[in-house]
Design a protein around this nucleic acid. Structure first.
Length: 677
DNA sequence: GCAATGAGCGTC
DNA sequence: ACGCTCATTGCT
């Protein structure tokens, strides 16, 4: 080998030291989900460092891969192929993130290559060659007293400042500036010389959190990562993190894998938001990724939200995490007055305003009072544009529930979950507030028994409310309208779909959670948790009851989930939710896998797993919607939590058997799926 | 009896 | 998508 480097291939000589490279080749096949050994030629010796991207010949093809480590020798019996090329000397896959990717793949019954693709953004050569932007380290100020309202808050900040790996589940008080609290925690971590990584569900939350962190550690002290930055800027910021130029990283989903140096704090805000579930294989959830990462990296973990998920509750009940919550007196002082209006229908029927806008009288009163006090009113209406409702077939009077005067709608029955299929009540009129069916409706105005379908959406609600409060500004956020981040302090009606509620400058005077019952109508395992999460998110934007804050939720007051909102008890609801799931045997009380695909393929995977794992229980299969005319089925596999790793391993082995045999039908496997119909 | 050809398979 | 094995084919 000459000093100038490459000659013809035949003259390549192996590197003098550690000539073997272990390479994770980019092949997403389960039976090839392990490192392969290659020879490092002497001319690539210096560049072939752990973490760099390489090109290697694999089964004849030139493929991308990551060099995981250098070794003295290989256990492989045959001759090793050369590392053909080091794509760039940038060590993109750090050892810590590589270990995390392996742990995530193992947890999700997926393959390393798929997880690495989620973790490492595509390379951008020009950006890599740029001179790094100089960043000025800003002194971080002392922690704000905000965490003092939570008895264990100061201890949490102390642990972060001392570099200790605390694990916490935090329920933010209504009205809490959650972004500022997370920024406090990040700043405390950064002061200890370690990195902080904070993950939020969407861009709006990211903007708020980024600003809060910049206020603590300076604009150069924080980097925001999100998927919609564009390839160049995305890679530029990601590189700044990898190169250790920042201590605080905020981001959405994929940022959970950001290669932050010496992670001291890993945090996820609002872990119940389904944006935290990666839609690509192997479908990891941010919370699970961060839990694994906290283990492998020895970092603190903070799971926060206004509400609490059953998964977070399990972290608490298992003793792995401590809860950080305010005491009852502090909660009582912070909450608005919350009432359920499912039983105020008698008034509703008499109130002409209410009838015009489908809004119960108490909600009108609350809205009017808030507007007169000069504050905005938040109106939360269901997403999806239009909510189906029923009206009299002859006089077009809206059809109302005889019990509570809520609007009647056609409820589609739950997805067929067994041989019986959908129940006979699948398309009967039901009350959208209290859920009672009405099989013998007669119009109180004209006596007709005929019903016709109509639809009301966010836009229609805004229009109707505007008529009911003449002269009041009506603004819309979500549901077709652009999502607003903030609204001003003046009186206005702000109609928003769940998740699109703008923050009001000085808090809302009232929130009306309309058609709340529809949130509970979906045949989903997590409906009540999801409904409470959305209600809490809206109610948290309202000023405390001492300042006149009111929340009206149009749902049956007797329902436990409605009671949990009225009492502002998300932890209690999560405990009941988790107990309920233990009773019926659903995650996170057990470990479950959804196996989907062509019937034969699904059955083959299930048989392989059942043969491998004696304790695995098989549920189903059920038929799914056909894709491209192909029949598809879903089958659930259930094991006790202690066998979770074994279940994932058995599924991986079953997939490996299929990929080795080049089975044509792909089988989709998701562990602890959020949606299982 | 044995080279020439092609299908199947593993993949360093 | 290469390079190996192994089975089949076709010619002497």
């Amino acid at each position: 080998m000459t000093a100038s480097g490459v000659r013809r291939r035949g003259e390549w000589a192996p590197a003098d030291h550690r000539p073997v490279a272990r390479v994770a080749v980019d092949v997403p096949l389960a039976h090839l989900d392990r490192p392969f050994d290659y020879r490092v030629p002497a001319h690539l010796d210096a560049q072939a460092q752990p973490g760099v991207r390489v090109r290697v010949r694999f089964a004849g093809r030139l493929l991308d891969g990551f060099l995981l480590e250098r070794a003295d020798a290989s256990a492989h019996a045959g001759t090793l192929a050369w590392v053909e090329k080091v794509v760039s000397p940038e060590p993109a896959l750090t050892p810590e993130v590589a270990a995390l990717c392996r742990a995530v793949a193992d947890r999700c019954a997926g393959v390393f290559a798929d997880v690495v693709r989620l973790a490492v953004p595509p390379r951008h050569a020009r950006v890599e060659a740029e001179a790094p932007r100089p960043r000025e380290a800003a002194p971080t100020d002392a922690p704000a007293p905000g965490w003092g309202r939570y008895p264990r808050g100061p201890a949490l900040l102390d642990a972060l400042a001392g570099g200790r790996a605390a694990h916490a589940v935090w329920q933010a008080l209504p009205g809490e500036d959650w972004a500022a609290r997370l920024a406090d925690a990040a700043a405390a971590t950064a002061r200890a010389g370690r990195g902080a990584l904070l993950v939020v569900p969407d861009q709006r939350d990211l903007d708020a959190l980024g600003a809060a962190c910049a206020a603590r550690v300076g604009p150069d002290g924080v980097v925001a990562l999100s998927a919609d930055l564009g390839p160049a800027e995305r890679y530029r910021r990601w590189l700044a993190v990898r190169r250790g130029q920042v201590r605080v990283v905020v981001g959405t989903r994929a940022a959970a894998f950001a290669p932050i140096a010496d992670p001291g704090l890993l945090a996820v805000w609002d872990d119940g938001d389904d944006s935290h579930t990666e839609p690509r294989a192997p479908y990891p959830h941010v919370r699970d990724v961060l839990v694994l990462r906290a283990h492998t990296a020895g970092a603190a973990l903070l799971v926060g939200g206004y509400a609490r998920t059953a998964e977070a509750q399990l972290l608490v009940e298992s003793g792995w995490a401590r809860e950080v919550v305010a005491d009852r007196a502090t909660v009582r002082a912070a909450v608005p007055r919350i009432v359920a209006a499912g039983d105020s229908g008698a008034e509703l029927a008499r109130d002409p305003d209410a009838r015009a806008a489908r809004v119960p009288h108490v909600a009108f009163t609350a809205a009017r009072a808030a507007l007169e006090a000069g504050r905005p009113v938040l109106v939360q209406v269901p997403r999806g544009g239009y909510v189906p409702f029923l009206a009299c077939g002859s006089c077009r009077e809206a059809a109302r529930c005889r019990h509570c005067a809520g609007p009647l709608g056609l409820r589609s029955g739950p997805a067929p979950s067994g041989p019986g299929g959908a129940g006979p009540d699948a398309a009967l009129p039901h009350c959208r507030w209290c859920g009672r069916p009405d099989t013998a409706y007669r119009c109180p105005a004209c006596g007709s028994r005929r019903l016709r379908a109509g639809a009301v959406g966010a836009g229609r609600t805004a229009e109707e409310l505007g008529r009911a409060f003449p002269g009041t500004t009506v603004r819309s956020s979500g549901g077709g309208a652009p999502v607003l981040a903030r609204v001003g302090a003046g009186p206005a009606l702000v109609v928003a779909t769940p998740g699109a509620e703008p923050v009001a400058e000085a808090g809302y005077g009232a929130a009306l959670l309309l058609d709340a019952w529809t949130l509970l109508a979906r045949p989903d395992l997590r409906v009540t948790e999801e409904a409470l999460r959305r209600w809490c998110a809206a109610a948290a934007l309202v000023v405390p009851h001492g300042a006149g804050g009111r929340v009206v939720v149009t749902a049956e007051p007797g329902l436990p989930v409605v009671q949990a909102l009225v009492r502002w008890d998300p932890a209690g609801h999560a405990a009941a939710e988790l107990a309920g799931r233990a009773e019926v045997g659903f995650p996170p009380a057990v470990r479950m896998a959804a196996v989907e695909g062509a019937p034969d393929a699904v059955a083959a995977v299930a048989d392989a797993v059942a043969a491998d794992l004696a304790g695995a229980e098989v549920l189903g299969p059920i038929e799914l919607e056909p894709v491209d005319g192909e029949v598809r089925e879903r089958l659930l596999l259930r094991v006790p939590r202690a066998q979770g790793r074994a279940l994932a391993a058995a599924l991986h082995a079953a997939q490996a058997g299929r990929s080795a045999r080049k089975a044509a039908d792909a089988v989709r496997v998701r562990l602890d799926p959020a949606e299982i119909g």
